[in-house]
Design a binder for these strands. Structure first.
Lengths: 108, 108
DNA sequence: TCTATTTATTGCAATATTACGATAAAAGGA
DNA sequence: TCCTTTTATCGTAATATTGCAATAAATAGA
């Protein structure tokens, strides 16, 4: 069916999975890596930097924007994309909360 | 095409994306949530706990096992699945390294 | 206004993912 | 040995994702 049964999971589980899913592509990790290193950025640079076609990059940027990790502000003919620091911090603490649930040893 | 161009990204970017991808499904997050809470677990319990069909759970367990987050030891007729603590720690530190790259404010 | 530049959208092909019924495989107990 | 229990695998349908060519949309400058 290819259709995730979101309704049987908790809100938190769905949120974490949604974020992880967006981070689950090397192009999007590469885009974030690049944005994190810079203070600002335009899509044109990303096309050269990442090495995928412009529509593909645009699509990945859309995904990242959808969950609020990045934001784009129109700057003349081009668009300045950057990390949405506030949201990114929220997302990071959500992920950290999940990652730090497990502290002690398990069985086996 | 549906085919990720892994070859144009760094090893680290691919690794992070691969792990994030596996974490990118609420069923797998729910499974990990459950395994983390317990000391051990059998798939039978998971089928009841999660609420997906047994083959579906088995498939998700396979995904988690593929990247080493969990391990399964045969225990009679059933299988004991648990967190692979050593690997999980490695994965957590990899993700944390990525999440903590960004510390200061960006532009815009 | 016309043109160049930059980014978004559309449409499509190829492949991947999700889910599950049916069935196999493996092991314990009657 | 036969049956039961438990988990894995196969096969398949429905949907999602990835990537890009073509094209649209928006704006700056000549």
């Amino acid at each position: 069916m290819g259709l995730t049964k979101s309704e049987i999971f908790t809100k938190e589980q769905n949120q974490i999975a949604l974020i992880a899913k967006v981070l689950g592509h090397p192009a999007r990790i590469a885009i974030l890596d690049y944005l994190i290193r810079l203070k600002s950025c335009v899509c044109g640079d990303l096309v050269k930097q990442i090495g995928l076609a412009q529509p593909t990059i645009s699509q990945h940027l859309k995904e990242l924007k959808k969950v609020g990790i990045i934001k784009g502000t129109i700057e003349g003919t081009s668009v300045c994309y950057c990390i949405n620091q506030e949201n990114w911090d929220t997302i990071k603490s959500m992920l950290n909360k999940f990652l730090n649930k497990n502290t002690t040893d398990n069985c086996c």
